[in-house]
Simulated scan of single mutants.
Amino acid sequence: MKILFDVAYLYYLPHFTPVLDELKAQGTELGIVFHSEPPATIKTQLASLAEIHIINEDDLVSFYITQNPDWIVFGHAAEIAEQLNSHCKTALILHGLGPKSTYYNASSSPIQYRFVESEHRTQTLQQLYPDKTFVTTGYTKLDPLVNGTSENIDLADKGLVPGKKTILYSPTFYPSTIEKFPKNWPEQFSDYNILIKPHYLSLIKSAYKKQRELFEHWKNYPNVYLASPEEQSLLPFMATADLMISETSSALFEFMALNKPVIVGHFLKLRVGYWGFLKYRLQKRLSDDYRLFKEIGTNINHYHELKEAVENNLRNPKLFEQQRLKYIEQIVGTVDGHCSKRVANFLLNN
């Protein structure tokens, strides 16, 4: 059997790699299709796992038809699946957990099959799209953490202090808190290690140049380590951190699955079109899952609330534990280290 994985962006890889490992172990012919040249380090890491292809988006359809695979696995709502479904089967492993409405809207695409994290979400999606096929497998990205194959960050190697508590700041690209943080905020948290893991789009898109300038400034503080673009997986950062700070991002749901405290920042820098009465545009981008953020951790509306929130959660890490445990099964599904195996078995048996 031949299975190709479509990597439109590098941040799809942590969702795909555990499945690739399972399929490789079963002797499957595998290919990874990048839409642009990936960093050399990533190509080297993947070379033993699958054949690497770099294909321009305009040439994807003809490439896939020529390759004649049994399956193509996408990480987003790929409209080109409509032209491919008569040649092979298509599947979706979405590159996140929500809460943006695109999580649910992704199934309006012509992709035939979708692997879903939880039975609760499968039921919701099936009601929305009764003609589509959904397969409950769990969240593949977390398998390496559960199985102990994801390495922690070596704090000493990064110039940080192993004995200190470690904060993970993992902001999304938009809407984001990044530009609402003071330039000297690491100084105000000098008692802690700070890991900054930006979203990949913050690092590559011209629209987010000011965000990159702040990252470059913050990394000069002795208690800060800034992830490089090549460090695509959030897993080592999550494994190492004692607490995560982010916005209403799927990364918080992922960290929640480890039953560690989270802080949700609502002090966002919004584009002009989202100001004032037009904030309803922002709400339209978010699904009903947005309300869950109010329950899984401390929510703050201003930066000046952050220090107290961090200190309080690190003193009391079980503060929101019951709510976290309640929603892990609903959002993330079964966290048993075998999610990728379930995906791989479905692909091979169908």
Rank of each mutant, 00 (worst) to 15 (best):
P229L: 06
E151C: 03
T137G: 09
S150D: 02
L201T: 14
Y225M: 09
S170R: 00
I153G: 07
F181I: 09
S228D: 10
P229N: 07
S170N: 03
A156N: 13
K209T: 12
P171E: 06
W218S: 01
H199N: 03
D143A: 12
W218R: 00
Y225Q: 08
L214K: 06
N220P: 00
Y192N: 01
D143Y: 14
L214A: 06
Y129L: 02
K158A: 15
N184C: 01
T177V: 12
G159C: 12
I204H: 07
R212W: 04
S190P: 03
A207T: 14
L214E: 01
K180Q: 15
I167R: 00
E151A: 13
L201K: 15
T149S: 03
V161F: 10
H217P: 00
Q126E: 06
E213L: 05
K158W: 13
E231S: 11
D191S: 15
P171S: 05
L195Q: 03
A156T: 15
L145A: 09
T136L: 04
V135F: 11
K197Q: 02
A227L: 07
K180E: 15
K210S: 08
Y208A: 03
P144N: 01
F173G: 04
V135T: 08
G159S: 09
D191Q: 12
F215T: 02
W185H: 11
A227H: 06
L168E: 00
Q211E: 05
D191T: 10
K180C: 13
D191G: 12
K210E: 10
T133M: 13
L168N: 00
I178W: 01
N147P: 03
L155N: 09
F181S: 03
S150Q: 10
K164I: 08
N223Q: 10
K141D: 08
Q188R: 14
N184Q: 08
H199I: 02
D154Y: 14
S233K: 04
T177I: 13
S190Y: 13
Q126P: 03
K205C: 10
K132F: 11
L234E: 03
L226Y: 03
S190F: 05
S228I: 04
L168P: 01
K180F: 07
E187C: 07
E187W: 12
L226C: 05
I167L: 10
N220D: 11
T137Q: 09
I153Y: 10
S170Q: 00
I204Q: 05
L145V: 12
K164N: 15
N220C: 09
K219N: 07
N147G: 10
T177D: 05
N223T: 13
Y221V: 04
P186M: 08
I194G: 02
I167A: 01
K210D: 12
D157K: 15
G138F: 11
S150Y: 04
S190H: 15
T133N: 06
L168C: 02
T136W: 07
P144L: 01
